[in-house]
């Protein structure tokens, strides 16, 4: 015997059918009414079975959908985690790449004074050798010696000034390199620091023919993280070179720093280039947002700027731009950084 959940009802209906068959109902009307009631009960029973099957099937579908939902959610979470890991490693790669760019800039900058020094020294060596030959042959005229002294003066002046220039550059790079590679905080004067930073960036700017103007309150001292500030300025300059100025056009970058109030430094970074489309302005700090994907843009430069300002410097950054009228980044950060930097 197969069990059905409607055993009771079936038995009841069976008994009612037997009664319809066997009993005397007294009148045709009573029999008709009883028969009608039995039909309705049968119908209702079928309805109940249908409803039960329907209910079970809905429940079944719901639980399938739920399982699918749980599975997809887990999948999405896994994908998100992978994306975050990838993002972290790309940001690290971008930091390394900007360090690489810095090294190239240093090499280029140092190359000029060293080159002049080598040239001047070799001219001097030639002149000395010539002078010695004339002296030994006894053909050295007074005018030859006077000419030599003029050349020697000029050459030694060039050697000295360019060697000094190289020493000065190396010192400023050393300072920047220390700041770049450590998160150490120190007290530094803002104006000379900005000049140092721009010195290390100037090869690239000069190559493209752009002008940089720095305006800064005299004697403004900051107690904070110069390394972070260096990276911020580097990335803003690189961003301007890539996006603000079209190839072949020259422009001006203006960096204005001042004490906004007793505790806050305001730094405005302005270019007179292309500007940023209104639709993009809300997304420029998003990781991987770039309008130059095909042309080597990583979409991380301004994201790193944002992280450093909000995280390390504990400050804020906003952008103002009109297409065709240039862009201004307005950065504010505490003159004295809070006790602990936020890790980024």
């Amino acid at each position: 015997m197969t069990f059905t959940l409607f055993d009771n009802e079936e038995r009841m209906a069976g008994r009612a059918e037997a009664a319809l068959r066997d009993l005397d109902f007294g009148s045709d009307e009573a029999r008709a009414a009883y028969s009608e009631l039995l039909d309705a009960y049968r119908k209702s029973l079928r309805e109940q079975r249908r409803m039960m099957r329907l209910g079970d099937r809905l429940q079944e579908q719901l639980s399938t959908v739920n399982q699918e939902l749980v599975r997809r959610r887990a999948e999405a979470e896994r994908a998100l985690q992978q994306l975050r890991d990838a993002q972290d490693s790309l940001i690290q790669a971008e930091k390394l790449a900007s360090l690489g760019g810095l090294v190239a800039g240093i090499a280029h900058e140092i190359n000029t004074p060293i080159g002049i020094t080598v040239t001047a020294a070799s001219i001097l060596a030639d002149q000395v050798a010539g002078l010695r030959r004339q002296f030994q042959a006894g053909t050295l005229a007074r005018s030859d010696f006077e000419e030599f002294m003029t050349t020697a003066d000029e050459a030694s002046r060039l050697v000295l000034s360019n060697a000094n220039r190289a020493v000065m550059l190396i010192q400023s790079f050393k300072q920047v390199a220390v700041d770049q590679t450590t998160a150490d905080r120190r007290v530094f004067e803002l104006k000379p620091y900005l000049s140092e930073v721009l010195t290390s960036l100037s090869p690239r700017l000069r190559r493209a023919g752009h002008r940089v103007v720095v305006e800064c309150d005299e004697g403004l001292e900051v107690d904070g993280y110069p390394g972070a500030l260096f990276q911020v300025l580097t990335n803003l300059v690189m961003n301007a070179l890539q996006h603000a100025f079209e190839a072949g056009k020259t422009g001006t970058i203006r960096i204005r720093a001042r004490l906004f109030d007793a505790d806050t430094v305001e730094l405005r970074f302005t270019d007179d280039g292309n500007g940023i489309a209104a639709a993009d302005q809300g997304r420029i700090f998003d990781p991987f947002f770039t309008t130059k994907r095909g042309a080597g843009g990583s979409g991380l430069g301004l994201h790193i700027v944002f992280n450093l300002i909000v995280g390390t410097l504990n400050g804020s950054i906003a952008v103002q731009s009109q297409p065709g009228e240039g862009t201004t980044f307005i950065i504010g950060f505490p003159r004295v950084a809070p006790a602990r930097p936020v890790a980024v």
Binding site: M52, G55, D56
Partner: peptide
Amino acid sequence: FNSSSAKALMNLFL
């Protein structure tokens, strides 16, 4: 519980 379990419970209570 689902619909057929509800029906089974009803049978149990009867």
